[in-house]
């Protein structure tokens, strides 16, 4: 198949399979992009999410642009992004045109609670996978726990947390030359 068509269709498939925000897309990204296509590694996905949530635009779109660009330059970035939004345009237009009170149907609400239960389980499973590559030493565990507590319970903005974590990384690994741990060492 044409590489660009493959890129568009793979991301369109991800658009169809995602329910919720960009985080809900992560388990699908791991399966399609990391495991099936090999366009990125788990570590790169973590990087894209880090950058994607402190730069303009919504995370799902930012991540799609990142992966597409890494794989096939500017046209790749554009096609992956158009792919991920394409199903939304079709599905939402159809719903807006025909069933205005879709979310009010009890059937849709029951299904959504089930879907969200699956999303929770799949995100948890993705976090475990990402943790294997991103939490390799004591310092990274401390950063993980600190951001989790400050982000979830204290409610500090992700933008601030990401910038702070970058500074901490620079101080620990750049200035103090702490070993990074993991396979490379």
């Amino acid at each position: 198949m044409n590489i660009y068509l493959d890129l568009f269709l793979t991301f369109a498939k991800m658009g169809v399979c995602t329910f919720g925000g960009g985080y809900a897309m992560l388990p699908i990204l791991q399966r399609e992009v990391v495991e099936k296509k090999g366009w990125a590694t788990d570590e790169e996905l973590t990087d894209y999410y880090a950058v994607g949530q402190c730069t303009p635009g919504i995370i799902a779109v930012n991540t799609a642009t990142f992966i597409g660009f890494k794989y096939k330059g500017i046209p790749g970035g554009i096609l992956a992004t158009l792919g991920v939004v394409f199903p939304s345009v079709v599905i939402i237009t159809a719903i807006a045109a025909f069933i205005s009170n879709f979310a009010q149907y009890p059937l849709a609400r029951h299904a959504l609670v089930g879907i969200n239960a699956a999303v929770v389980a799949l995100i948890a499973s993705s976090v475990v996978k990402l943790g294997k590559s991103s939490l390799k030493n004591a310092a990274s565990l401390v950063i993980f726990l600190a951001v989790l507590v400050l982000g979830f319970w204290v409610g500090i903005s992700p933008v601030i947390l990401i910038v702070a974590a970058g500074v901490v990384g620079y101080v620990l690994y750049g200035l103090m030359k702490l070993p990074k741990g993991g396979k490379k060492q």
């Binding site: 985080y23 949530q53 948890a124 976090v127 939490l135 950063i143 951001v147 947390l161 974590a165 990384g169």
Partner: peptide, 16 residues
Amino acid sequence: AIFCGLRPASTALIAS
């Protein structure tokens, strides 16, 4: 070095 600090933070935000 910066990304080594970002990765655990990014994982934590996804967990959050």
